[in-house]
Design a protein around this nucleic acid. Structure first.
Ligand SMILES: [Zn+2]
Ligand SMILES: [Zn+2]
Ligand SMILES: [Zn+2]
Ligand SMILES: [Zn+2]
Lengths: 135, 135
DNA sequence: TTAAAACTATAAAGCTACTATAAGGTCAAT
DNA sequence: ATTGACCTTATAGTAGCTTTATAGTTTTAA
């Protein structure tokens, strides 16, 4: 299986596959005589794993860490679960920050309707005056 | 006023000020004979405006757009308000996506307790099996 | 058969919004 | 005279790819 087929199978671009290989997330495959990469099903599974992790918002570093646990299956899975717990709290704090931001933006937006000139725009005035309530 | 004083006044690093100048967000100040930048109060206001926009999550491109409106004060402010509306919807869709993600992560986490080996870890199994419900 | 289309390879740059480092010039005080 | 604080430019690094450039290979079609 060549790189294009693998890419289509998993739904990634070929460059992305090369990039993961370069980053050490995907093992370097064998090469044909012409230098073309040849992939096996294992590579497909590995790549799909990476993609699912990315969809879950995990960073490449976190994925790398997960892979190191996979390579050592007799360890207790405490570290895996802890990694996920950490990531969940990342996500939660992002949500909290964005919600505070949304509130601020909505109140700023409420300070203007569309029937004004830029010089009287409540939004621009609100930003310029700097009476922003820090979270 | 030199760059260090301006930086301290607004609470930014000096490199950030030079960066904004390079990006066309802050007008190039006059220079002393020795090449040092000399800033006025106007620059201070401009820089503070940029920083407040950044705190509101606006991109440098969006800030640039806002500045172009400021330079043309007789236009109606429809575009300003529209920019903010767009940004609010950016933020809202990010929140929605993150909330869906959080749900997925929490349910994945619930599939494992800490008292297993990596080979039986519900989290790793959940990712590997790929039975993830796409949002 | 040959020429174009499609695929592969590497290397390097671009994206965002800075931050950090290097190597050096300027200035006040000691 | 030299230390230290400040300023200058240029360059590289961050994350996770995407895009571009350049070139070699394979497949398909005329
Ligand atoms: Zn994380
Ligand atoms: Zn307005
Ligand atoms: Zn925006
Ligand atoms: Zn587990």
């Amino acid at each position: 299986m060549r790189i294009g087929q693998l890419a289509q199978l998993v739904g990634v671009e070929t460059q992305t596959i090369r990039f993961y290989e370069q980053q050490g997330l995907l093992p370097p495959p064998d090469r044909q005589d012409n230098g073309y990469r040849v992939y096996t099903e294992k590579h497909g599974e590995g790549l799909a794993f990476i993609r699912r992790c990315r969809i879950l918002g995990l960073s490449l570093a976190e994925i790398h860490e997960l892979q190191s646990y996979q390579d050592d299956p007799h360890q207790p899975c405490t570290a895996v679960n802890a990694l996920l717990d950490d990531h969940i709290s990342h996500v939660r704090s992002q949500i909290t920050a964005l919600q505070a931001l949304e509130k601020q933006l909505v109140s700023l937006r409420a300070s203007c309707n569309d029937d004004r000139g830029v010089e009287a725009c409540g939004v621009l005035a609100g930003i310029s005056e700097g009476n922003m309530h820090q979270q």
